[in-house]
C-alpha cells in the first residue's frame, strides 16, 4: 500500500473526526470493510458492476448489430466462430443482443428505482408524521394496493394502457410503491416524537420542511436496502411482461421477449431461450446477494440472521 493510500485510511479511521464529512466518510468506509468480509455480497456487487459496464460499453463490446437480421446465419449453435452464444431465428448474434439488452434492463430498473420509492417515501412519511385520519386513509390505500398480486395488477394495467416499455415501467412503479410506504411509515413513527424534531419545530419549521429535511433522511437507509432487494423482483416482473408480449416490443433486445421468441425452438435449438434466461437469472441473483449483504451491513438489527 502506498503512503498516500495509508494516509487516507488513517484519516478515515480517525476516531475523533474533525468535520462532519470526515465522520460520514469514515462510517461509509467501516461499512465497506464489513461488507468486504461477506464474499457473497462482493459477488453480487461484482455482478451489478459488470451489468453497468455491459450497458455503458455495449456498442464496443458487442461483436454484431443487435437488430439487423441475417437470415443466412439462422440458429447457429453456441461456440460457432463469431457467435459465441449462437444466433437466433433471425440470424442475430445472441451475445450482442444480451449486451444491448442490459441497457433496457438497467433503464427499466433505474426508472422504477427513482419513482416508486420516492412516492412510497412521501406517502409513508406523511402518514407517519401526521398520524390520525391522514395515516388511516393513506395506509388503507396502501393496503388495497398490497392486496393485489403485483404481476396481475401490472398485467391489468398494461392491458388497458397498451403494451410497450413506458407503460410497463409505469405499471411496475404503480405496483411497487406500497412496501416503501410501509417501511417509511414505520421509521417515521420512531423519530417523530424525538427531541430533535421538537427542536426543529420550535425553531418554526413547518411540516413540509420537517418531513423533507429531517424525517425523510432517517428513512433512507431502510428504503435503500429495500430498493436493492426489490430490484431483482422488478427485473423478473419486467421480463415476465416482456415474455407475455406486453412489455418492451421486438425487435428491441429485451431479455424476457428474447426467451419468448426462443420458445418455439426450445427442443431443437435450446440456446435461443436459455441464454437470455441465464442473463436474467445472474443479474437478479446479483441484486439479491448485494441487497442481502447491504442489509447485514447497514441494518444492525438483522445482522447475523
Amino acid at each position: 500500500m502506498s503512503a498516500g493510500m495509508s494516509q487516507i485510511t488513517t484519516w478515515l479511521r480517525d476516531p475523533n473526526p474533525t468535520s462532519r464529512r470526515q465522520a460520514r466518510l469514515g462510517q461509509a468506509y467501516m461499512a465497506w470493510l464489513r461488507m468486504r468480509r461477506n464474499p457473497l455480497a462482493m459477488v453480487g456487487l461484482g455482478i451489478v458492476a459488470v451489468l453497468m459496464i455491459m450497458a455503458a460499453f455495449a456498442p464496443w463490446l458487442a461483436p454484431h448489430d443487435p437488430i439487423t437480421q441475417d437470415l443466412s446465419n439462422r440458429l447457429h449453435p453456441p461456440f460457432t466462430p463469431g457467435h459465441i452464444l449462437g444466433t437466433d431465428d433471425f440470424g442475430r448474434d445472441i451475445l450482442s443482443r444480451i449486451l444491448y439488452g442490459s441497457r433496457i434492463t438497467l433503464f427499466i430498473i433505474g426508472l422504477v428505482a427513482v419513482t416508486a420509492p420516492v412516492f412510497g417515501l412521501a406517502v409513508g412519511t406523511v402518514a407517519g408524521y401526521f398520524g390520525g385520519w391522514t395515516d388511516e386513509i393513506l395506509m388503507r390505500i396502501t393496503d388495497i394496493f398490497l392486496a393485489f398480486p403485483k404481476l396481475i395488477l401490472a398485467l391489468a394495467l398494461v392491458a388497458v394502457l397498451g403494451p410497450g416499455m413506458e407503460n410497463a415501467i409505469l405499471a411496475i412503479a404503480i405496483t411497487s410503491w406500497p412496501p416503501y410506504a410501509r417501511v417509511a411509515r414505520a421509521e417515521t413513527l420512531t423519530v417523530r416524537t424525538s427531541d430533535y424534531i421538537a427542536a426543529v419545530r420550535l425553531q418554526g419549521a413547518g411540516p413540509v420542511r420537517i418531513i423533507l429535511g429531517h424525517v425523510m433522511p432517517m428513512c433512507l437507509p431502510s428504503v435503500i436496502i429495500r430498493v436493492t432487494l426489490d430490484m431483482a423482483g422488478v427485473i423478473l416482473i419486467a421480463a415476465g411482461l416482456g415474455f407475455l408480449g406486453l412489455g418492451v416490443q421486438p425487435p428491441l433486445p429485451e431479455w424476457g421477449a428474447m426467451i419468448s421468441a426462443g420458445r418455439k425452438y426450445l427442443f431443437e435449438q435450446w440456446w435461443v431461450a436459455t441464454m437470455p434466461g441465464l442473463a436474467i437469472f445472474i443479474v437478479s441473483l446479483g441484486f439479491n446477494l448485494l441487497g442481502d449483504g447491504l442489509r447485514d451491513v447497514l441494518d444492525p438489527r438483522s445482522a447475523g440472521r
Binding site: 421480463a239 415476465g240 424476457g256 426450445l266 434466461g277 436474467i280 437469472f281 437478479s284 441484486f287
Partner: peptide, 13 residues
Amino acid sequence: LMGYSMPVFWLGL
C-alpha cells in the same frame, strides 16, 4: 436465493 432470482417462466421452459 437462486429460487428468488429465477424467472419462473424460464425455469419452466
